[in-house]
Write a protein that binds this DNA or RNA. Structure first.
Ligand code: FES
Ligand code: FES
Lengths: 121, 121
DNA sequence: GTAAATGATACCATTTTAGTATCATTTATA
DNA sequence: TATAAATGATACTAAAATGGTATCATTTAC
């Protein structure tokens, strides 16, 4: 998120990992890996070769925290009731599951409402 | 939760792990460990020796999902921004952190509103 | 042709997760 | 009072996730 914020703040300039490393004090390889993932997931565009780097592929108000979390953390599931790798048989009738699913939906809605734009102060 | 629901449903009877295992098809040792923890955390009371077992230590409407999650999962923190084990320096000014803390508070409030009582249909 | 950039991918140590297993202690009761 | 039925304490484990690092390959501007 720090990297995305920085990139967004330099609108439509190509930013290299090295520049980000200097500004953000995040290790080079670590940051590079993250940006590569964001590129694959079409949040960033990348340009190879000398003079290359990264740019936003979307406008800041089209980049949602919910999507970024899904990219790095995997799909949301607060609540898949397993046992020894097998799904709980009550999964379709369970009151608790219904309540938690409900909370999950509300959280996802809130995470969707947080855009990169909304983090640019 | 399944075990607590079962125990609650047999109000004020002492329930053994073996009985729960039969009803709930959860492995004995696993369930035992869980109930031991709940006993230590004063959600259950235990009685040792023959004729022993477990009972609720609180009324079902005094047992909150939020507390059970804290017991097994540890404290809530959706959001402690670390780097190589060190806290992020922006932790006090970060807009994103504030937004996430906010969501966390709302989720905790909802988890507090789910009592064992509310799961007894 | 070379340096500066990303792409792909393999690697690693540590911690967490999701349980299992075992021995010790307590207590009712035959 | 011996025994069986219960929990208490605690050690153990395999597998996965976490939080990164490192390296070689490729592209491209100059
Ligand atoms: S879905 Fe498994 S107990 Fe609720
Ligand atoms: S608290 Fe670390 S970047 Fe927000």
């Amino acid at each position: 998120m720090k990297a995305l914020r920085y990139i967004a703040s330099q609108n439509n300039k190509i930013i290299t990992v090295s520049e980000l490393v200097k500004k953000l004090r995040i290790p080079h390889s670590f940051l590079r890996k993250i940006l590569q993932i964001l590129n694959k997931k079409r949040i960033l565009k990348s340009y190879k070769g000398q003079g290359g780097g990264f740019m936003l592929a979307l406008k800041p108000d089209e980049i949602f925290l919910a999507d970024l979390i899904r990219i790095f953390h995997g799909p949301f599931k607060f609540n898949d009731c397993l046992f020894v790798k097998k799904k709980c048989p009550e999964v379709n009738s369970c009151i608790l599951k219904r309540k938690i699913d409900n909370i999950e939906q509300r959280v996802i809605a809130e995470l969707k409402s947080i855009t990169l734009e909304s983090l640019l102060q």
